[in-house]
Amino acid sequence: MKGKEPMRIERINNGIVIDHITAGKGIEILKLFPTEILRTKIDYASYIDSPRMGMKDIIKIENVDVNHEWLLKVALLAPDLTISVIRDAKVEEKINPTLPEVIEGIITCRNPKCVTVKETYLTSLFRVARQENGKLRQQCQFCEHIFHS
């Protein structure tokens, strides 16, 4: 869609609108949803013009709710995004996901030699911080490896 006319995305009556997603990250956010939730109507536009961000992705999903675990995951992928919860064609709530300093569970360590990868009953533990360049720094508290997103 890059450089073309803005994509037309239809209004929804119930569901969520995920806006201000870092351009190109939308597909990763969609992958966070369980398959059964994705059996619904989804509009997804990638690399559309944004006055604030230059380029962004946007996703609309009908008949779905957000939950805390999911919010943390999406915030890790795209820290600038906003989520609007739509009920009866009106914006019922606007959410800016915020990250705690420490995240238990939810994230999986990407170091294949980390104990949490092999001993899967262990709950992962990450310290998360936003860097000056806007990227997120995630450090596994077991193996201490650092990842950025």
């Binding site: 030699k113 001993e119 077991f142």
Partner: peptide, 13 residues
Amino acid sequence: RHPLEGSALAATR
């Protein structure tokens, strides 16, 4: 001594 990183910390649990 264990080959996985973070294993000793995990063991303390």
